[in-house]
Design a protein around this nucleic acid. Structure first.
Lengths: 247, 247
DNA sequence: CCGCTTAGTAACATTTCCGTAACAAAACTT
DNA sequence: AAGTTTTGTTACGGAAATGTTACTAAGCGG
């Protein structure tokens, strides 16, 4: 079933990566590993400096530590997303393990992916690569609080959902799952990927549990629960959200 | 393999795990818990032995205690990473609590994850699973992209295929086979090669099964199923994909 | 035209996968 | 503490995918 992985070639283009991190030691480490892979690394010690630098010349990707002094990392995240000029910049968040809040909020603020500390350099590099690769395919930047399309309406700030004008009471997980789907439309995700992104990378839940939540979500948002149009099953792969069915 | 209802334990493949740990007691504990979950466990008492064993036959994952006599755990870790043959082996570190140490582990040596002593068996197993899971699709879930030529259109992200604008529902194998053909045009492949590349090297399937899948694929994408133009039979050799017939 | 080899096809058997409901456990409320 | 909601796990059954095989058709060399 698994195709033999091809050996990844070194970074073909010299991508510029901005590392926003106050602890010098970790910054060094990140820099070392990224440079070894052929990336060009710039540094910023805090959010304000980072923002200035970005405005002067935008990098290809930002690696952002969430525990920043002064401007909390999230604020930087939000500001980047708020500025149309740079809103599509991929952001990789570095966060401490187990801080559920950071993860959820990070993704909520519009971070594109995250790694937990202490992280393995390999994983960091892999995720940077993955983000750069799909940088073109921008996901819908839903950092502002409202999503509205066809018969679906979501307020991310107040955690409210309406279907055909009718208010639905979603449980938190259902809501987070919906959020993820809405922000990553069309592409197929495996159960494992969904667990990583919605539940968190270091929680351990059975993959089939995803099915159950998908079902519950479908019951809320699908017109005909027996023939799903929005959350589609891709057999032996995973699930896919197709917003075009909303119109 | 065909018992009516066997308790399904998660472990489709019997992963081999090397435990590097000098304290016999802890080693036993780790072994017991991993084996109970269906893993095959091998042991090594110190870094040198471990390295020899790995070179002889690489396991799927290493569980490494940091306080090893002789070669410090760090050194083993480094050596593994230095050898391209085995550099991609996932390493799970077991360590005593201590903030300083933790950081060094995660950051400097390229372990992939860690647990602190005393650890709960459940957590250990969970982290082992998570690492193995990620090692599987190490690079990225799918090769990004869109293929479009003549009357054929393939979206590799969403696993969708259109022929003459009409959506076709391919099964996964059919899709993977098509993917392979599209990515390796013109050249002839034997059934055995196709099995290796599409099914995977360690699956054991009758070569003639390829015929059946080729047929099913043809039914989807060929204009005249009786006179194939795209997937051509090369008698007594194999099959060949000719995209020029698409125009 | 014959005989041999190889590929195409359909039918069948087996396996895998998913939707679902029911239950259990955990988290919250009151 | 009892009740309520949310969340995760599991077993079951049906459906789809996959693999095997037997039979048929086609190619090919004489």
């Amino acid at each position: 079933m698994n195709q033999p992985q091809q050996q990844e070639t070194r970074a073909p283009v010299n991508h510029r990566i901005l590392v926003v991190e106050d602890e010098g030691e970790i910054r060094q480490l990140i820099r070392y590993n990224l440079e070894r892979e052929g990336f060009t690394v710039e540094e910023a010690a805090d959010g304000a400096a980072a923002l200035a630098r970005i405005r002067r010349r935008a990098p290809d990707l930002i690696v952002l530590d969430l525990m920043l002094p002064g401007m909390p990392g999230l604020e930087l995240c939000r500001q980047v997303r708020a500025d149309p000029e740079i809103a599509s910049l991929p952001i990789l968040v570095v966060t401490a393990r187990g801080s559920e809040v950071d993860r959820v909020i990070g993704l909520e603020m519009g971070a594109d992916d995250y790694v937990v500390k202490p992280f393995s350099p390999r994983e960091l590099v892999a995720r940077v690569r993955a983000l750069l690769r799909r940088a073109g395919h921008a996901t819908e930047p839903t950092s502002d609080g409202l999503y509205e399309r066809g018969r679906l309406r979501i307020d991310f700030d107040t955690y409210q959902v309406w279907v055909e004008g009718e208010r639905k009471a979603l449980a938190l997980r259902e809501f987070e799952l919906l959020r993820f789907f809405v922000q990553h439309p069309m592409r197929v995700y495996t159960r494992e990927q969904l667990l990583d992104m919605v539940w968190g990378r270091d929680t351990f839940v059975e993959p089939r549990t995803v099915d159950v939540h998908v079902r519950r979500l479908r019951q809320h948002i699908e017109r005909d629960d027996a023939n799903p149009r929005l959350i589609l099953t891709v057999r032996s792969v995973g699930y896919r959200f197709d917003p075009s069915a909303l119109d």
